[in-house]
Design a protein around this nucleic acid. Structure first.
Lengths: 199, 199
DNA sequence: AACGTCATGTCAGCGAATGACATCGCTCTC
DNA sequence: GAGAGCGATGTCATTCGCTGACATGACGTT
């Protein structure tokens, strides 16, 4: 890994565009090189050519930088659930949505690996990841209820889907030669079916 | 709610026993009265007749006070899983363990209500709760593997069990006249079976 | 009575986060 | 094209969570 020699603002004056992007890139680089705890917000801001105060105008806290993509993922899941044919069973709808999420992760696996290695090394980041996942489950359950799915079933299906995503992602990220993530997700849904009550 | 008039050390000198207990009680009282964020560690320590530094010798951080019971819960879950008859299916073993946890919550519902109202009002506390739940799932999955359950199934069963516990607890805590929690858990496991499409 | 040990106190300091206010650069208008 | 307005950024001060280093007090042992 190379040291942080690049200064993302260099000769730039104030008002250089893409402040959020510069902060994002600077933070990721430092988190990967030194680790999350060993990186201060002041360092990130300096590398991006901004001040500490500005960092907190773009990101609620030091952790949030790593979870910037969560909103888009939530939109994908919700819209996939909302757009599914009315005839499909709730668990099938959730399965389709989770597979779509898996396909997104599959592109850009290198970035996901880097990001996950940072998260795996820090408990605070794992906490943040878990609450994002819980938020995804909650949003999917809402989307199911809008389709007329009644309540214990909606929550259970959504939570089950997130559980599958967690386990599938973990396996996929730890594989040296990765298999197809959506397919792995499909297999885990099948396994879940077996596990919960094969007679 | 009464203001914090009680000083848990009063005329006590140094070396008064049960420092952890006093900190626990002081923290809970202040969290309930003022809310978690509005309570400083210095205030907790003062109410307990100790110093801020000593608080951090007993609790890793300000949040951990509210999760002191998690270790005992984990032991209960793991030992229940470990002690189940060999003939039982993994999901049944998990179901028994989760029901046992539910029974523990059922005693002391008032305390659980108070605790949960504090947690519900603060995102950081929800994060900590989620990582504790994830830790419970991980511990149960380990316990299943020691019984010879192979890996995708062990993780899936454990995560499904935790999902059921989450949903059951949430419903139970929001009921004015609460039904039997272990029974609610049993019903949710049945519903999960239906939802996943197990025939 | 001296000693060692363990719990607690004291002190100094770092870093995350936030509020209040100043300042800079762009754009729009007259 | 000079000034007004405005949004993005900087500056400053402060609070609070948390930690390390070291001092001190109480207790049991010999």
């Amino acid at each position: 890994m190379s040291l942080a020699v690049i200064n993302y603002h260099q000769g730039m004056s104030r008002w250089e565009p893409n402040a959020r992007g510069r902060l994002l890139q600077a933070a990721l680089e430092l988190y990967v090189e030194r680790g999350f705890e060993q990186t201060t917000v002041a360092e990130i801001a300096k590398l991006a050519g901004l001040t500490e105060r500005t960092f907190f105008r773009y990101f609620a806290d030091k952790r949030e930088v790593l979870f910037w993509g969560a909103a888009a993922l939530q939109e994908l899941l919700v819209s996939t659930v909302a757009g599914a044919p009315d005839s499909e069973a709730p668990i099938t709808v959730i399965g389709t949505a989770i597979e779509a999420a898996g396909a997104v992760f599959q592109e850009g696996r290198e970035g996901a690996l880097l990001r996950q290695s940072v998260i795996a090394a820090n408990a605070e980041l794992q906490e943040r990841e878990l609450i994002k996942l819980a938020s995804l489950a909650s949003a999917m359950a809402d989307a199911l209820r809008k389709r007329g799915v009644s309540d214990p079933g909606a929550s259970l299906s959504a939570e089950a889907g997130i559980a599958v995503l967690k386990i599938a992602f973990e396996r996929w990220i730890n594989e040296t030669s990765p298999q197809d993530l959506p397919q792995l997700i499909r297999e885990l849904f099948a396994e879940l079916k077996v596990v919960t009550g094969a007679t």
